[in-house]
Amino acid sequence: MVDVSDVNYAVGGRPIFKGLTLTARRGRITAIMGPSGTGKTTLLRLITAQITADAGTVRVFGENVATLGSAAIYGLRRRMGMLFQNGALLTDLTVFENVAFPVREHTDLPEPLIRKLVLTKLQAVGLRGAAELMPSELSGGMARRVALARAIVMDPEVLVYDEPFVGLDPISLGVILRLIKQMNDALGITSIVVSHDVQELSTIADDSYLLSAGAVAAAGAPAQLRASDSPAVRQFMTGSAEGPVAFHYPAPDYVTQLLADD
């Protein structure tokens, strides 16, 4: 469904990806993990064609996104859904209208049908009762569930999640985790989940990739990743401060700097 091959991408001369290659297969949950700053969100922007790679190809539904015009990209996006870190709900619309938004924009369905469709999706995330609330009245977890309902309302083939677990309490986190699994199993959606919450993600992912220094450091089922003997992979999977990823940001010698003024 989604093929990223040999992608290079740099921002302001700083390379983010160097020869990145990964694949998300149809109907599976693909986890993309990695420490902060490894370009996980940038990867999602590449997949959703918000940016184009400097080199290499990104194929979605078999089409090279770099060669598509804006109309074709919009056509592609209508077959995808994306869940943003903060939900990105439209703040001037109610929960109901937020979920109805893509339907109203892209179809001419009659109002009663839109109503049924939206209520079904809200029921799926357990928030049918919150339909008339404004986004400002929702908790973080609820906002993310509404955003999930909005992302699936057009029945996408691919659903992309950007850090879906950040800042959630354990209960909300469990709910979102279950929903991702449910969406995948019940609707056959291909899911790509970007996150650094290794433990949570390992429980639902079919395939996982660990990004480090702009490329895939390890790939395979979550269990395989845990069994890896690469120091970088081990450090990330166990959450250790010791390892190839240094705790300290590069700095001059500590003692020299402290004593410099004397």
């Binding site: 918000q50 995808m80 703040t91």
Partner: peptide, 12 residues
């Protein structure tokens, strides 16, 4: 708050 990006992703 990513609302504009979200619209773009929803092909609006």
């Amino acid at each position: 708050t990513d609302q504009l990006t979200a619209m773009e992703i929803m092909a609006v």
